[in-house]
Amino acid sequence: MKLQHNLGGLENLGPVNVETNVFVQPWEKRIFGIHTVMMAESTHLADALPRYPIAGLPTTFKNTWTWASLRTGAEGMQPFEYFKYRYYEKWLMGISQFFIDEGYVSADELDEKTRHFRANPQAALPDQPNPAIATQINAYLVKGDSGFHEFKEAPRFATGARVRVADPDAVDHTRLPGYLRNKEGTVDLVYPGAFSYFVSTGPDGIGHAMPVYRVAFDAADIWGKEKSEPNTTIYADLFDAYLLASD
């Protein structure tokens, strides 16, 4: 991942925020809700498990939106801008830009609405209840989605195999922690089935269904003995595309 999104092992970055509340401000709940509704209406659910009746859903939202979409928006921020904003402010920026890019709202329209509600914070929000969409959202909250598939081929690696983490070209979004690139570890578990990611990361290598492994790393092999507690193991779940046979 890009620097601002995976800081494992880096020093002198200042104090760590140890806030334990999921939502610190009331408005953050609304941002989480918007993201959840977008996922519940996402076109990818037509092929996810369980299957959802997306084609007949009475909504104007006709795009794929997953956790990957949300993370891509945040990861596209300029690094110094990224550190300036709160967690859910980054969500809001990514979601807003997505709606602008896809033509659901223009930047001028969004600015006008922003000015309106800042000047009139008690103004009523649009209310267009739709029972079918409410049913879909409730079903999604209960059942979720999954990219699970049955194996078509045996996994390349078995438990106990020594592997080396690949170093693919950097792309807009990845599920490979930067601090694990080129590190060696041992396959600790082969998860049953294969898993897709709903969106392709292109040269990064994930998208179609593939095995996922839990790989164990000696902390000292990642950060060095002088910066690691003894007898410490780091575990990471990694897609098959991110692993190579150890030399």
Rank of each mutant, 00 (worst) to 15 (best):
Pro155Phe: 00
Ala170Ser: 14
Lys152Asn: 09
Gly205Pro: 02
Arg164Cys: 12
Lys183Leu: 11
His149Glu: 03
Pro230Met: 10
Tyr213Cys: 03
Arg214Tyr: 06
Asn182Met: 13
Gln136Met: 14
Met210Asn: 09
Thr232Asn: 04
Pro168Ile: 05
Pro177Phe: 11
Phe151Tyr: 13
Thr159Ile: 10
Val199Leu: 11
Lys183Phe: 09
Ala216Cys: 07
Trp223Ile: 10
Asp204Tyr: 07
Tyr213Pro: 05
Gly185Lys: 06
Gly178Phe: 12
Ala158Leu: 05
Pro177Lys: 08
Glu226Leu: 10
Ser200Trp: 02
His149Pro: 01
Gly193Pro: 00
Gly185Leu: 01
Gly185Glu: 02
His208Cys: 10
Glu184Phe: 05
Leu189Gln: 14
Tyr179Thr: 03
Ala194Thr: 02
Arg181Trp: 07
Asp172Glu: 15
Gln136Val: 07
His173Asn: 15
Ile137His: 12
Glu229Phe: 13
Tyr213Asn: 01
Gly144Pro: 04
Asn231Arg: 13
Thr232Trp: 08
Phe151Leu: 12
Gly205Met: 04
Asp145Pro: 04
Trp223Gly: 10
Asn182Ile: 10
Lys227Tyr: 15
Pro211Thr: 02
Ser200Met: 02
Ser196Ala: 09
Ala154Asp: 11
Ala158Cys: 03
Ser196Tyr: 07
Arg162Ile: 06
Phe157Val: 02
Ala216Gly: 01
Gly185His: 05
Phe148Gly: 01
Gly207Ala: 06
Tyr179Cys: 08
Ala161Trp: 08
Pro230Trp: 08
Arg181Thr: 09
Ala158Tyr: 05
Glu184Tyr: 08
Arg175Lys: 10
Asp221Pro: 07
Gly224Ile: 07
Gly205Gln: 09
Ala161Phe: 03
Val165Trp: 10
Gly178Pro: 08
Lys152Thr: 13
Tyr213Trp: 06
Ala158Lys: 15
Asp172Gln: 15
Val163His: 00
Leu189Gly: 05
His173Pro: 03
Thr232Lys: 10
Ser196Gly: 14
Val163Met: 05
Gly193Tyr: 00
Pro155Lys: 01
Gly160Met: 09
Asp169Cys: 11
Phe195Thr: 00
Leu141Arg: 15
Ser228Tyr: 07
Asn182Lys: 12
Ser200Thr: 05
Val215Gln: 01
Ser200Lys: 06
Asp169Arg: 14
Gly147Pro: 00
Pro192Gln: 03
Ser146Val: 01
Ala139Asp: 13
Val215Pro: 00
Leu141Tyr: 12
